[in-house]
Amino acid sequence: MAEHEKITMAQAFNQALRDAMTADESVLMFGEDVGALGGVFRVTDGLTAEFGGARCFDTPLAESGIMGFAVGLAMNGMRPVVEMQFDAFAYPAFEQIVSHVAKMRNRTRGALSMPITIRIPYAGGIGGVEHHCDSSEAYYAHTPGLTVVAPATVADAYTLMREAIASPDPVVVLEPKKLYWSKDEVDLDEVQPGIGRAVVRREGTDATLIAYGTSVPIALEAADAAAAEGRSLQVVDVRSIVPFDDETVCAAVRSTGRAVVVAEAPGFASVSSEIVARVTERCFHHLAAPVRRVTGFDIPYPPPKLEHLHLPSVDRVLDAVDTLQWDDV
């Protein structure tokens, strides 16, 4: 196997944008501070220099305007990629996303499509102050017409971004801020499963941990810790929240008969509750215990000094696994 340089997840996103812009002249990248600065997380670093200010550019500071501008550009043959600087700063764009981006194809019976990629740095664990750490995936996943992905690995960051940009439909790419600087040695040419596919990240036989985005490393770490204690945990990385891969997730759960969903968003009316419902509906007779969840509390995202109390931890995951009715009383 050829040697590959270790790159960060941010670099993988950047490379995906660069390759997509090289491959297709209609791809435009815009938002706030994405030009000269290269984005506050440097994901668009160097793109303006390489492709010019007409292809990668800063806009006025107005998220609804950015999103609506993308709608118009897409109506007229462009393939916009927009950056919402932080999860909680994307809310002004919410009406444009829900009322137009998500509905345009359906509204026009396919006459107008919206090949728009909405990049949203999401979730916490970075010591960010208020409005910088929301997990807003449920809002988008609940909106018919949107595709929603949350990569957890460097290789997936590249693959899912390329697929998002190539998609004829709008895709929300939730970029896990906490993992931007995670590094991996990856062959970007290696074909990864596409949007709509979950993958088993770790084989295991006793219980299945189901996670996405920032929670995947927690689940893997928990599986390592459990292995040391003699318990074999399987880890499924959801990757694609919409479309959801019922087949892979349910096959995994059926193989172990026990499951815990791990996600840092508040648990009430969330993606994690949807996963529990789907798994329970489809795998009930294979389950030895109710499906458990480890999620954030139903609270506004905490200040940096308290966020560790809110976020799923390895211990909480292991504690949840311990409650999966291992022994008949």
Partner: peptide
């Protein structure tokens, strides 16, 4: 209105 601006800019 903002869609109109996007169409015009394209």
């Amino acid at each position: 209105l903002i869609h109109a601006v996007g169409v015009a800019h394209a």
